[in-house]
Nucleic acid binder design. Structure first.
Lengths: 130, 130
DNA sequence: CAGTATCCTACTGGATACTG
DNA sequence: CAGTATCCAGTAGGATACTG
């Protein structure tokens, strides 16, 4: 379902509003082009996942950063949080439909990184020898 | 001393996975899922661009961060730097073929951000009223 | 114009402790 | 288990000045 969005009439020659510092799209970009977002997606795109399971799966993320990133994503309607009031409580994070529309993109980011890591590493080494 | 982990093989994830902290792909992901990379691509995907033109076009980026990000991308073989030794010197940045393979991905990131900024903004406001 | 270096502040983000 | 709050150390990153 695409938005019948009246395209930004503000800049004819500059359709990249994301280049404008104060444009809301810049904040959205900062959210999705984030250090941890693509990794969280790697888990959530498969199935709803609990907090501690996320932290265990994503090596190197701290409790604080996971909380913070999840909260940001939830706040922006990309991630949903469901509490089951058992004791102790079980909280599951999942992707909203908005979030689901990002799955291919986030997967492509991870995939590119994994597929080109050798190439990039070789370039880095070659650069050093200059 | 550190984990010689076999443990995470419980997931059916690739051993060379961005989920592994020390995996080179993680660094690659950090490079491309970066605050400024997608914006630099917005310019370079069109044509080779000079340093100052980049800084003028990308609102909010500082001299230092632009230098740093360009150097990182160059170092990893994604961006190329061509010096024309005129006076004053003219330096043009462009995408390598490796970098060019990222164009669709970076464009998709920007596009998603721009297309969903209202939706995200509405979610953010709705969240606050709770 | 392009790049490097320095200084210095502000914030990121980790470790820890505590609540429900 | 999930979440919040606090402290604080390290560093990201802006402003500035200087070279070629």
């Amino acid at each position: 379902m695409e938005e019948t969005l009246q395209t930004s009439s503000t800049h004819n020659l500059s359709p990249h509003s994301v280049l404008i510092a104060h444009c809301p799209s810049r904040q959205v970009l900062d959210l999705i082009a984030d250090k941890w977002t693509a990794l969280i997606f790697a888990l959530l795109e498969r199935q709803p996942t609990r907090f501690n399971e996320l932290q265990r799966a994503i090596e190197g993320i701290s409790h604080k950063m996971l909380t913070q990133t999840l909260r940001n994503l939830e706040q922006r309607g990309i991630v949903e949080r469901k509490i089951t009031p058992t004791i102790p409580p079980a909280v599951e994070y999942s992707l909203s439909s908005l979030g689901a529309s990002l799955i291919p993109l986030m997967a492509a980011l991870r995939q590119w990184a994994e597929e080109h890591m050798e190439e990039v590493e070789l370039a880095r080494q070659a650069y050093e020898e200059k």
